[in-house]
Design a protein around this nucleic acid. Structure first.
Lengths: 146, 146
DNA sequence: CCCGATGCTTGAGGAGGTCAAGTAAATGCT
DNA sequence: AGCATTTACTTGACCTCCTCAAGCATCGGG
């Protein structure tokens, strides 16, 4: 234990801090999305659409019922941010693809998460790398389902 | 750049990782809450109630409209997890206080966030302290509103 | 060829969220 | 004191998100 090592936090403190940061980032995201007339759920869906994605895949990613995705995509399609395309090899599936406008909007939403960007900017390269490495170690355990 | 220093991540990578962890933790929390018949929002409210809290204060903490809190507290009160008490010095305000059962339930929810607990357990004391310190530096910037 | 599994939509119903309006109580300004 | 403004909460209308049950179309394996 070197002189510069901070006190070891309790697991509860760490949990609470992690929750606070998660909440803050989510609010930042929701605010940026709202700026473009999107709910946070709609923005989240848009954020997944790097390529065409079947409805089912979307439901799996969001960990929700397929029927829920129908409604969300309906609303996104209504605004012209997304398109349903027939799948070439399976006529049951509909691939969802972001329109040019959709891609543009989600790019701006990401850029406009000012609180998050600002906070991350206070970290130097070395601290960023350390944080990244620690979070990367946490991730697999967190995403495992009970 | 020493041999053991990991590559510096881009801000986008760090942002994405932070979002993933936040999402995973939220899901863990929601699952634990559901185990006790609570929605995640209800559990979140219950988690704030260390002492009596006026409806208005609750709305401010949750960053939502006061009318929304009315409904959430109605449902919690219906299950006997919470009580509305008249305020001694201002007859307009109603203080919300957790019942014994309410306190018990939220304590169990926290304990049952297994994915999160499991992930945090993989970190040693020193790594925990490092992570805690880095997140603590991030927090104020993240909670500042745009 | 038929039968079960898969992909999507629809409809009913609950919870979370906002806004506008209403009531009751506190505060503040002459 | 008295009247106007503000503040705390509730109600009602209306939307989105979410789940479950049911239905339809298509796919794939005996």
């Amino acid at each position: 234990m070197s002189a510069t090592t901070p006190e070891t936090p309790t697991k509860l403190q760490l949990l609470e801090l992690l929750a606070a940061i998660g909440t803050a980032q989510w609010r930042d995201f929701a605010a940026a999305a709202a700026h473009h007339g999107l709910t946070s759920t709609q923005a989240k869906v848009l954020a997944q659409l790097n390529g065409p994605l079947p409805m089912r895949a979307l439901a799996t990613l969001l960990v929700c019922d397929a029927s829920n995705v129908t409604g969300i995509v309906d609303r996104l399609e209504g605004r012209g941010l997304v398109r349903r395309e027939a799948d070439a090899s399976d006529r049951r599936v509909k691939n969802v693809v972001a329109t040019d406008e959709g891609r543009d909007v989600i790019r701006r939403v990401r850029e406009e998460m000012q609180a998050t960007h600002g906070a991350l900017d206070t970290l130097g390269a070395e601290d960023s790398a350390t944080l990244y490495a620690l979070l990367a170690r946490l991730r697999p355990g967190m995403e495992k389902d009970a």
